[in-house]
Computed example of a mutant assay.
Amino acid sequence: MWEADKAMDRETLEQALITRHGAENQKKFAAASVGIAGLGGLGSHIAVLLARLGVGRLVLADFDRVDVTNLHRQHYFLPHLGQYKTEALVQQLRQINPWLDYEVHTCKVSADNACTLFRGCQVVCEAFDKAEEKAMLVSTLLAGLPDTTVVAGSGMGGTGSANAIRTQKAMGRLYLCGDGESDIALGQGLMAPRVAVCASHQATMVMQLLLGKSEP
């Protein structure tokens, strides 16, 4: 575990968060539990943003290792190549806030284990690449975890305007972030700016939900 500088302690960091976020807001963030399924272009950035908010418990799940094709859009660096994404990401998150609870699952999320992995999470962010995996996770969590809200990504490929990426409430416990149209399967590519914008939309929706706001 990363050791904080002697000039920094938990109370000092928590007070800084309270100063910026407000005491009541920070109390809600600190008490929250949020899951992230997939730690690639969306998930790695979402995790960093939520750690900066001071979300008390982050449940992180991914089976993959960092490779060179990840570096252009995911929150990893050259020294992380070959490491499991779970391990590489937690190293970074602990440098942001070492006093949060990081629960790591280095495994493939499936219909059989998703509810077990994310049980107790108020919100789970879907951050997979493939459409069928996205659909699996959303349907599994909505059916199996009735107290959990899902924030999913849907369309962030290509080079279109960032203004096309939006957040919408699809149903009671499901929110979709993205342009709803672009698809890497159509050869549109994945560019860091649009992926990061979509990740920020997801993290912002999580923030709003934790503060009791249900509309984007």
Rank of each mutant, 00 (worst) to 15 (best):
residue 182 S to R: 01
residue 3 E to M: 11
residue 40 G to H: 09
residue 196 A to L: 10
residue 216 P to D: 06
residue 23 A to P: 09
residue 213 K to E: 15
residue 105 H to M: 04
residue 101 D to K: 13
residue 65 R to E: 13
residue 201 H to D: 05
residue 118 F to C: 01
residue 109 V to R: 02
residue 56 G to D: 12
residue 103 E to I: 12
residue 167 T to F: 02
residue 51 A to H: 05
residue 25 N to I: 03
residue 52 R to G: 09
residue 115 C to I: 09
residue 42 L to C: 11
residue 147 D to A: 14
residue 150 V to M: 07
residue 119 R to F: 03
residue 3 E to Q: 15
residue 136 M to H: 06
residue 196 A to N: 12
residue 169 K to C: 12
residue 162 A to W: 05
residue 60 L to W: 02
residue 22 G to N: 08
residue 159 T to D: 13
residue 152 A to E: 01
residue 100 L to V: 00
residue 188 Q to N: 03
residue 147 D to W: 02
residue 115 C to L: 08
residue 191 M to D: 02
residue 203 A to G: 12
residue 163 N to A: 15
residue 199 A to P: 04
residue 127 A to G: 13
residue 182 S to H: 03
residue 190 L to E: 10
residue 196 A to C: 12
residue 55 V to N: 01
residue 44 S to N: 01
residue 147 D to I: 01
residue 105 H to D: 04
residue 141 L to T: 00
residue 99 W to N: 07
residue 31 A to V: 03
residue 162 A to H: 13
residue 158 G to V: 04
residue 147 D to T: 12
residue 58 L to E: 10
residue 50 L to Q: 02
residue 123 V to Q: 05
residue 107 C to T: 15
residue 77 F to D: 08
residue 17 L to Q: 14
residue 193 P to N: 08
residue 99 W to D: 05
residue 84 Y to A: 14
residue 3 E to I: 10
residue 128 F to W: 10
residue 33 S to R: 15
residue 199 A to V: 08
residue 80 H to W: 02
residue 11 E to R: 12
residue 138 V to F: 00
residue 191 M to C: 06
residue 214 S to L: 13
residue 115 C to S: 11
residue 60 L to D: 00
residue 130 K to H: 14
residue 72 H to D: 13
residue 1 M to L: 10
residue 173 R to S: 09
residue 174 L to V: 09
residue 159 T to M: 11
residue 160 G to K: 12
residue 72 H to F: 07
residue 23 A to E: 15
residue 99 W to G: 06
residue 90 V to S: 03
residue 36 I to L: 11
residue 164 A to D: 15
residue 43 G to N: 06
residue 133 E to A: 11
residue 70 N to H: 10
residue 37 A to K: 00
residue 172 G to Q: 11
residue 173 R to G: 08
residue 120 G to H: 07
residue 20 R to W: 07
residue 140 T to L: 08
residue 194 R to V: 06
residue 65 R to Y: 09
residue 34 V to H: 06
residue 192 A to Y: 04
residue 17 L to D: 04
residue 49 L to N: 14
residue 16 A to Y: 11
residue 152 A to I: 02
residue 106 T to C: 14
residue 14 E to Y: 14
residue 193 P to T: 05
residue 211 L to E: 05
residue 202 Q to R: 05
residue 122 Q to F: 03
residue 175 Y to F: 15
residue 117 L to H: 02
residue 1 M to S: 13
residue 22 G to Y: 10
residue 4 A to F: 00
residue 192 A to R: 12
residue 71 L to I: 09
